[in-house]
């Protein structure tokens, strides 16, 4: 910014921007605060912001009563598992398309993307019936399979846009200097590819963690990840705001933290490289 900004203007913008930011963030903040209240305080009128007796009781109740740890573990296994398998399949594919592009490469890429446009509800019934007949309903394996497949196009695309930016010249230079193919891969390519792979990994764990169509439709008690577990709070019995808040806070905290790390990659990953 070459233009000088007067301190008064900067102060005004600061106040305004913080106000708007806090307003948008408020539902999350309120959930976190409520999770530390008792149920009675959670619905007290007028509501209190910080002047209540802070308690951890909700967290222990949620963990004891509802097998919270199982659902948390399911979320971890499903999101990390599907992302790792996806990467395993996508890295060679994206690699070859970026470095040995053929006439068809663009068509293949576009076709892969088109599978992402398929509305899940269009294939819900066959998948449901196939899962029922093969015993995959309500299993982690089943969800890992589905989430791997629905996120595979995004993984391939993200990796492709990153790999595409690795200059090919540098490989030729390494070869001229007498590097073997193995040395080329280990010392030249890998260090340049790792950041792209890492951000792809991060974004896809986030997407898989929050996926709430297949996880709700294909699981019951055993394989339900946190998305489905939280949904069970939709028919409440008795006082439950504080417990809902505690369960929600635990469900979103890991992903909020990962999300903040991956915010720069988010744009590129979700627009398939159309906006950088």
């Amino acid at each position: 910014m070459a233009r000088a900004v007067t301190p008064a203007r900067k102060a005004t913008v600061t106040v305004f921007a913080w106000g708007v930011g806090l307003l948008i963030f408020f539902p999350i903040l309120w959930t976190i605060l409520t999770s530390f209240k008792t149920e009675a305080e959670a619905i007290a009128s007028p509501p209190s912001f910080v002047g209540f007796d802070w308690t951890l009781e909700n967290y222990s109740t949620v963990m004891e009563r509802s097998n919270y740890f199982l659902h948390f573990l399911n979320s971890v296994v499903i999101s990390v598992g599907s992302t790792l398998i996806g990467l395993l399949v996508a890295i060679p594919a994206a690699w070859s398309m970026a470095f040995v592009p053929g006439k068809r490469t663009k068509d293949v890429l576009m076709w892969m993307l088109s599978t992402k446009m398929l509305p899940p509800v269009g294939v819900l019934i066959p998948i449901y019936l196939i899962f029922r007949d093969t015993g995959l309903l309500d299993t982690r394996t089943g969800l890992v399979i589905v989430l791997t497949l629905i996120n595979l196009p995004i993984i391939v695309w993200m990796l492709y846009t990153y790999f595409k930016e690795i200059p090919v010249d540098i490989l030729e230079a390494a070869r001229m200097d007498g590097a073997s193919l193995r040395a080329e891969i280990i010392y030249v390519l890998t260090p340049m590819a790792v950041p792209g792979i890492a951000s792809t990994l991060l974004l896809n764990i986030i997407l898989a963690w929050n996926e709430a169509f297949w996880t709700l439709n294909l699981t019951a008690a055993n394989a339900a990840p946190l998305t489905a577990f939280i949904a069970s709070y939709s028919s409440p019995e008795g006082l439950f705001y504080a417990k809902l808040s505690a369960a929600s806070t635990m469900a979103i905290a890991p992903i909020l933290i990962m999300g903040w790390f991956s915010q720069k990659q988010l744009v590129r990953g979700l627009t398939f490289g159309a906006v950088k």
Binding site: K10, V13, A17, W18, T227, S234, L244, L256
Partner: peptide, 29 residues
């Protein structure tokens, strides 16, 4: 403005909230 990074994070945060959580928090609280 001051605190650009933090405000940016506050604004982006809702995107990372899973749909079932955001729906239930809005509905109830």
């Amino acid at each position: 403005f001051w605190g650009q990074g933090i405000v940016r994070i506050l604004v982006i945060a809702p995107f990372f909230v899973m749909p079932t959580v955001s729906a239930l928090v809005w509905k109830n609280m």
